[in-house]
């Protein structure tokens, strides 16, 4: 826990200063999780604010301060899921707005500014994003929380309110789909190179 239980209890009673302290303690961690869940740096703060906005209006529903962190993660997961769903609807129109030439120019400008390390990171981000595209938004989030964020099954159980076995099955299936996507990506690259 990054904050004392007493601070959460105070925020629950409507103490704005206590709420501010909670946000300040957790915002970097939550923004990091969101960045990895949605993979769009420009929108991370917006989604982060949405998480804390939901927290502000749902704090009174929190039964005990002990379950605060799973509660906050649940809000994060839900906000990221809502964002990804909206994004999927917008994606097609947004791509259609840009001509091929504009996309190439934007890439070239961005590419020239990036150093080697940043290019490598960008490559990894794009690769994992495309692999995670093989699964649904729900599974993408679940897999990211487990494999990238490193949350345990026990923690996920508290966040999702689903038993461990159901989570294991869902994670296994999602992972299999991602592995299949990785395989076909490797085959495609090998095939393209020859």
């Amino acid at each position: 826990m990054l904050v004392e239980f007493e601070l959460i209890a105070r925020a629950q009673k409507g103490d704005s200063a206590a709420f501010n302290q909670i946000v300040q303690a957790y915002r970097k961690r939550i923004l990091g999780t969101i960045a990895r869940l949605i993979a769009r740096p420009d929108d991370v703060e917006d989604v982060g604010q949405e998480v804390f906005l939901r927290l502000y209006f749902s704090l009174d529903q929190l039964r005990t301060p002990e379950v605060f962190e799973p509660w906050l993660y649940r809000l994060t997961v839900n906000a990221a899921y809502d964002y990804l769903r909206k994004q999927r609807r917008r994606q097609e129109s947004r791509m259609a707005d840009l001509s091929d030439q504009q996309v190439m120019m934007a890439d070239a400008v961005a590419g020239s500014k990036l150093d080697q390390e940043e290019r490598r990171r960008k490559q990894v981000r794009e690769m994992v994003d495309s692999l995670l595209g093989a699964v649904s938004e729900e599974d993408r989030i679940l897999l990211t929380m487990k494999e990238v964020e490193g949350l345990s099954l026990k923690e996920l159980e508290k966040i999702y309110g689903v038993n461990e076995n159901a989570l294991k099955v869902r994670l296994f299936r999602a992972r299999q789909r991602v592995l299949k996507a990785l395989e076909s990506q490797s085959t495609g690259k090998t095939g393209g190179g020859e």
Binding site: L31, E45, G48, V128
Partner: peptide, 19 residues
């Protein structure tokens, strides 16, 4: 390979500083 990719992804997506 997938585990390694996930670890790299975690490093590639750093926690941004709030503005």
């Amino acid at each position: 390979r997938l585990d390694h990719l996930f670890r790299e992804y975690h490093e590639a997506c750093e926690s941004p500083d709030p503005s």
